Amino acid sequence: MSSTLLITGATGFIGRALVARHLREGGQVIALSRDAARAQQLLGQQVRMLSRLDDLPDSARIDACVHLAGARVLGPPWSAARRALLVQSRHGVAMALQALLKRLHERPKVLVAASAIGYYGNPALAPAAALDERGPPQPGQFQSDLCAGIERDALAAEGLGLRVVCLRLGVVLGQGGGAYPAQALAARLGLGAVLGSGQQALAWLHLDDAVGLVQHALATPALRGPVNAVAPEVCSQAEFTRALAASFGRRAWLRVPAAALRLSMGEMSELLLGGVPLAPAAALQSGYRFRYPQLEGALAALAAGAEPAPG
């Protein structure tokens, strides 16, 4: 019998790839979207669309839930209104999901929720070695508090008998969304730039492995709690920028001073200027095998499928 996934945030970058792969493998998808008509066009007629979880009957059969919903963190400045939106776009859907789980006659077995490496914040002292999932948060830093809240909401489902996995996603690289298309265009035009010192760690992950880790989390009963969804190879922001440029036969010679980023972006600049080395310890220990464990191979595969540079 094919499995049925309930996916929030199904029209997002990772969500679209997950839906496509699950359908290819013979599964069924129920997707939550604020604009169900648009989402239906985007995801296809095979997907059952919902604009509200309240529309699901108590008798609905759902094998697993994947919670990916949430406004994009890197965007407009983190004003009070923007912070409230970032929190509520995740918390509100999580609470609606909790309400659904409580009333279902038969509950799903597992919930996989998208957290982020922002959980670790920007510590005052750089760690001596790559952090595993036991690394501490940084209370008082917005990105860390946001991720801690996401995980707290998700882990509440354990009280309803679900196994919960919180994927702390790094920078996901793929075509058609996320940071890569704009970064690739800049690199092809010779405009790739080192940000600040460039020594800050940049934890990355190929889209294929982001989807693979979601599926691995769903299928691995022993896996629960936080999982660093990052590739095994650790690199700095400068190394990433130079490798990205090299994947298009270019060099990266520009540099953006940290002060300029802080002036223009405020605390949000820490997403670009901060970063600690992370290890995907839980993923590896549970038997996951990365398709793209090294940056060079991931960037080469992406460059091969990139759109031609304009002009």
Rank of each mutant, 00 (worst) to 15 (best):
S33G: 10
R52F: 09
G44H: 02
Q40Y: 02
L43Q: 06
I30W: 07
P57A: 13
Q41R: 15
I62T: 02
V47Y: 06
L42F: 04
L32K: 00
R52V: 06
L18E: 04
A31F: 01
R61V: 14
D54V: 09
E25A: 14
I14M: 15
A31L: 12
G27Q: 01
E25K: 07
R38P: 04
G44F: 08
D35H: 13
L6A: 11
V19D: 04
A36T: 09
L53E: 02
A17G: 09
A60G: 02
A31G: 04
R61E: 13
L32I: 11
G26D: 14
L5T: 00
R16E: 07
Q41A: 14
A36I: 12
E25P: 01
D35G: 07
I7Q: 01
R38E: 08
Q45G: 14
L23V: 02
A37V: 14
T8S: 15
L43V: 07
V47S: 07
T4N: 10
R52N: 14
L23M: 03
T8W: 11
Q40R: 14
T4A: 11
Q41D: 05
G9W: 09
S51N: 13
P57M: 07
L5K: 00
Q41I: 01
R52S: 15
L56R: 08
L53R: 01
R21S: 10
R24S: 13
P57S: 07
L56K: 05
L6S: 04
G26S: 09
H22F: 04
E25C: 09
Q45H: 13
R34H: 09
T11K: 05
T11I: 00
I7F: 11
A20S: 13
S33R: 00
I14P: 05
Q40A: 15
D58I: 04
A17Q: 07
A36L: 10
E25H: 08
F13M: 12
A17H: 03
L6V: 09
T11H: 10
R21Q: 15
A36R: 05
L53Y: 02
D58L: 07
V47D: 02
G15F: 00
V19P: 11
L53N: 03
I30P: 00
L42A: 01
A17R: 12
L43N: 08
G12D: 12
H22P: 05
V29I: 07
A60D: 04
L43C: 10
S51E: 14
R34T: 12
D54Q: 14
A37N: 13
L23T: 00
E25R: 12
R61W: 05
A31P: 00
Q45P: 09
S59C: 11
S33Q: 01
T8G: 13
S59W: 09
R38M: 06
D58C: 06
Q46W: 01
L56W: 05
I7R: 06
L5H: 00
L32T: 03
G44L: 10
I62H: 10
L18I: 02
R38A: 15
A31W: 01
R52C: 13
S51A: 13
L50P: 08
P57L: 10
A20T: 10
G27M: 12
A60C: 11
I7P: 03
L56T: 08
I14E: 11
F13L: 07
V19N: 08
Q41S: 13
T4L: 11
A37I: 03
V29N: 10
R34M: 09
A20I: 01
L42C: 10
Q45D: 15
L23N: 03
T11D: 02
R52D: 14
Q46K: 14
L6E: 01
F13I: 03
R34P: 10
H22C: 06
